[in-house]
Simulated assay, not measured.
Amino acid sequence: MRIENLKVEDLFATIDWCIKKYFPDNYDARCLYSACAIHTILVSCGVKAQIVGGNVGIFTVSIDGREALLQGFGGSDATQPSHYWVETSELILDPGAAYLPKSSQIKVVPMPMVAWRKTNPLPSYLQYQDKIRYAVDAEYMFAEDIATRISDFIELCKKRYTSRAAKKKLVTWLLTSPDSLNNAAKLGNKWAKCALHFQSMKSVPTIPV
């Protein structure tokens, strides 16, 4: 998948490698860092993008297939979002969706990263609720200690993304549309097959408004 001259798989592979290197113990809780890095790289490539904060609920299913939960990040308000992601005019970009198994309430199957095309309505297995949208040209304003760490992380991501020597291999697949889910299910992906069943149910849990 491409956004103009940028390959989303390479971008996500870069962010994934860097976030796990920089925060090996709690990379799943560092969505603000990844959002800032994605936003910076997109803007540097001439892509208009904005960081979005809010609530997220994503379908998860246990290894044995017997339990399913809507997991994610809730309780946001406009001053303190529980999760951050990036949006362009066409896509919702969130590699952090794949990190939900790390701190899941139950042991769940591996999950995709999200690069959802906005031409498709959000399905019940992928729920995003924005609480604040930062300006496309917003400047990052953080406390000094956090600002330094975010700046260093962004530089690490930029260096790896532009490196011709660094291998950029995505560790999972991209959830981009209902078609991508169907294709993954046909190939036997357990999360995709169970998400299809979840989507077909008449009543499913939703994140609070």
Rank of each mutant, 00 (worst) to 15 (best):
K48L: 08
K48E: 12
I51A: 06
I51W: 06
G54C: 09
I58L: 15
I58Y: 05
I58D: 01
V61E: 12
S62L: 09
I63H: 04
R66I: 07
E67A: 14
E67I: 15
A68C: 13
A68L: 05
Q71I: 02
G72D: 00
F73T: 03
G75L: 05
D77I: 10
T79F: 10
Q80S: 13
Q80I: 01
S82F: 05
H83N: 06
W85G: 01
W85K: 03
V86I: 14
T88Y: 00
E90H: 13
L91Y: 15
D94W: 04
D94H: 07
A97K: 12
A98W: 02
L100Q: 13
L100D: 09
P101Y: 08
P101S: 07
Q105R: 13
Q105S: 11
I106K: 13
I106H: 04
K107D: 15
V108R: 11
V109G: 09
M111C: 06
M113A: 15
A115Y: 07
A115G: 07
W116S: 10
W116C: 10
R117W: 10
K118L: 12
T119C: 09
T119A: 11
T119I: 14
N120L: 04
P121G: 06
P121C: 06
L122S: 03
P123D: 02
P123L: 04
S124V: 09
S124Q: 09
Y125V: 00
Y125S: 15
L126I: 09
L126P: 06
Y128W: 04
Q129H: 12
D130F: 03
D130W: 05
D130S: 15
D130C: 08
D130Y: 05
I132Q: 10
Y134C: 04
Y134P: 01
A135F: 02
A135M: 07
D137T: 08
A138N: 13
Y140M: 14
Y140Q: 12
M141H: 10
M141W: 01
A143F: 13
D145Y: 10
I146S: 09
A147L: 13
R149I: 09
R149V: 11
R149L: 14
I150W: 01
I150R: 12
S151G: 15
D152L: 10
I154S: 05
L156F: 05
L156A: 13
L156Q: 14
L156R: 12
L156N: 10
K159N: 13
Y161Q: 02
T162I: 03
T162H: 11
S163P: 08
R164Q: 13
A165G: 00
A165E: 10
A165H: 06
A166Q: 11
A166I: 05
A166N: 10
K168A: 03
K169P: 00
L170H: 03
W173G: 07
L174N: 06
T176Q: 14
P178L: 05
D179H: 12
N182F: 06
N183P: 00
A184Q: 14
A185C: 12
A185E: 10
K186W: 00
L187V: 01
N189M: 02
N189I: 09
K190V: 14
W191S: 07
